[in-house]
Write a protein that binds this DNA or RNA. Structure first.
Length: 386
RNA sequence: GCCCCGGUGGUCUAGCGGUCUAUGAUCCCGGCCUGUCGAGCCGGGUGCUCGGGUUCGAAUCCCGACCGGGGCGCCA
C-alpha cells in the first residue's frame, strides 16, 4: 500500500482502532502473512469511526476485568476467542435439537409469565400484570408435565428461566437458559436417562467435529464421556464421602464440597459425567415420585459433570391422590395449583424428565472460569445492563 | 444472607505513612521507521472510588458507604 500510494498509507495509519472501514484492492497470496494472503488496498473508506480511547482493549496486550468487559460487551465480543464460545453454544443447541427431533420429540414453548411458581415463592421474581401479581417463570416444570396428559408424549424446550436467588458464584446467574425434556409412558426412571444421555453425547460429538477451530482458539478439548454414563446411587455416594473422611448422615443433601469430592472420585474411574440417583424424597420437590420399595427415597437424579450439577430430573408422581398428598406435605397451597392438578384429574400417563442448565454445560464443556462467559449479556444479582 | 479479598490515568498494573509534582505497559496525540508484526523507535497527554477520622504529613493507617472478585448456602 505504501509504495503504491503514500497518501493513502498516511490516511490509513491515522484511522482509530476498531473503526469500521471498507477497503478495496487486490487480494494476493503472501507466505509471510499468517492467513496466507494480503489485500493490496487501492482505497480505504471509514464507514464508521471508533471513538477514542476505547473503554476496553480489543487488540492490545493488556487485559480487562470481567466487569469492564461486560459493561462494554459488544467490544469484548470483537475478540475471536469470545465469539468462539457462542459458536460452540450454538452447535450444542443445534445438536440437541437434531438428536431429540430424531427421537420423536416436539420442541415446545411454555409461558414465562406465570401466576404461580413451581417450587415455592422464595426465588420468584415478582412483577405487575395489569394490577395483578405475576411471576417470571423459574422453570417450565408444571407446564411440560401438563403436556404429558395431552398426547404430546415427548417434548423439550430451550428457554430462559429466572431465579431471584441472591447467589454470587461462578455458576449462578438470575436468568439462565434451561434445556428441559419430558417423556410420557415411561416404565421407570431409567427410561429418561437414554434421551438426556443421547442429547448430551451428541452435543459433545458435534462440538468436537464441527467446532474444531473454535476449540483450538479456546484451548479446550472436551472428552466424550462413556455412554451409558455411570450411575451412582445416593447411598453409594454417601459411602464414598464417608470413605473420604466426610461426615454425612442418611438423608442429608450433598453439599458443594461433597459434590466436588464425588466428582474427583468418579473422574478417577474415568467418569467425567455421571448420574447421581435415588435422592431422599424429603429434599426433593413435591412432583418427584417416591421409591415404591422405600418411600424415604425417590426416583430422582442429578447429572453431574466435572464436579458441577448440570441437570436434575426423575420420574414424576402421576397419580392424582399421591400428588395431592405430597403437595400438602410440602406445605403448598393446593388451590393455587388447580390449573396444574387438572391435568392429572382426567388421566395422566407415567412420565419423567429433566431440567438441564445449558449455560452451565457450555461453561464446563469449555472449562470457562465463570458461567457469565457462556452468556452474551449475563444477568446477575447486580447486573441488569447491558 | 454470611465469610474472605480488593478498588491507582480510557484499560491493566507497581507502590502500602514523608524519598510520589506516583511505576511500567497499553491507549490517545505528534514525529520517525517499516515487508509482517496484537511490529519497532522518539517526544507528549491522561490517574490514587466517595465521605469522615488518625497524623506535623495519607494513594499508603482506621471507620463507614458504594462498587467489584472469590467462597458458602441454594440450585441449572
Amino acid at each position: 500500500m505504501k509504495k503504491a500510494n503514500a497518501d493513502l498509507f498516511n490516511r490509513a495509519s491515522k484511522i482509530v482502532r476498531e473503526s469500521v472501514v471498507a477497503a478495496r484492492g487486490i487480494v494476493q497470496p503472501n507466505r509471510q502473512v499468517r492467513n496466507g494472503w494480503e489485500l493490496l488496498a487501492t482505497s480505504v473508506d471509514v464507514l464508521s469511526p471508533a471513538a477514542a480511547p476505547l473503554p476496553l482493549p480489543v487488540a492490545d496486550k493488556v487485559g480487562a476485568d470481567m466487569d469492564t468487559r461486560f459493561d462494554n460487551r459488544t467490544l469484548d465480543l470483537r475478540k475471536p476467542e469470545r465469539r468462539a464460545i457462542f459458536h460452540i453454544r450454538s452447535l450444542v443447541e443445534s445438536a440437541v435439537r437434531g438428536y431429540l427431533g430424531g427421537q420423536a420429540f416436539l420442541e415446545v414453548h411454555t409461558p414465562k409469565l406465570a401466576g404461580a411458581g413451581a417450587e415455592g415463592g422464595a426465588t420468584l421474581f415478582q412483577t405487575d400484570y395489569f394490577g395483578r401479581r405475576a411471576y417470571l417463570s423459574q422453570s417450565p416444570q408444571l407446564y411440560k408435565q401438563m403436556l404429558m396428559s395431552t398426547g404430546l408424549d415427548r417434548v423439550f424446550e430451550i428457554a430462559p428461566a429466572f431465579r431471584a436467588e441472591p447467589s454470587d458464584t461462578v455458576r449462578h446467574v438470575t436468568e439462565f437458559t434451561s434445556f428441559d425434556g419430558e417423556v410420557a409412558w415411561i416404565e421407570r426412571q431409567e427410561d429418561v436417562f437414554a434421551f438426556l444421555e443421547g442429547a448430551v453425547d451428541q452435543a459433545i460429538q458435534r462440538v468436537r467435529v464441527d467446532g474444531k477451530a473454535e476449540l483450538e482458539l479456546l484451548q479446550a478439548s472436551p472428552e466424550r464421556p462413556k455412554v451409558p454414563f455411570k450411575r451412582l446411587a445416593y447411598r453409594e455416594a454417601l459411602e464414598i464421602l464417608r470413605g473420604g473422611g466426610k461426615r454425612v448422615r442418611d438423608g442429608d443433601d450433598i453439599d458443594t464440597e461433597g459434590e466436588k469430592l464425588l466428582g474427583q472420585s468418579m473422574a478417577k474411574e474415568g467418569h467425567a459425567m455421571y448420574f447421581l440417583t435415588g435422592y431422599p424424597a424429603a429434599i426433593k420437590p413435591f412432583y418427584v415420585m417416591a421409591d415404591a420399595d422405600d418411600p424415604q427415597y425417590s426416583y430422582s437424579f442429578d447429572l453431574e459433570y466435572k464436579g458441577d450439577e448440570m441437570a436434575s430430573g426423575g420420574q414424576r408422581e402421576h397419580r392424582y391422590d399421591q400428588l395431592l398428598q405430597r403437595m400438602k406435605e410440602k406445605g403448598l397451597n393446593v388451590e393455587n395449583f388447580d390449573f396444574y392438578l387438572k391435568a392429572f384429574r382426567y388421566g395422566m400417563p407415567p412420565h419423567g424428565g429433566w431440567g438441564f442448565g445449558l449455560d452451565r454445560f457450555v461453561q464446563k464443556l469449555l472449562d470457562l472460569p465463570n458461567i457469565r462467559e457462556a452468556i452474551l449479556f449475563p444477568r446477575d444479582r447486580t447486573r441488569l445492563i447491558p
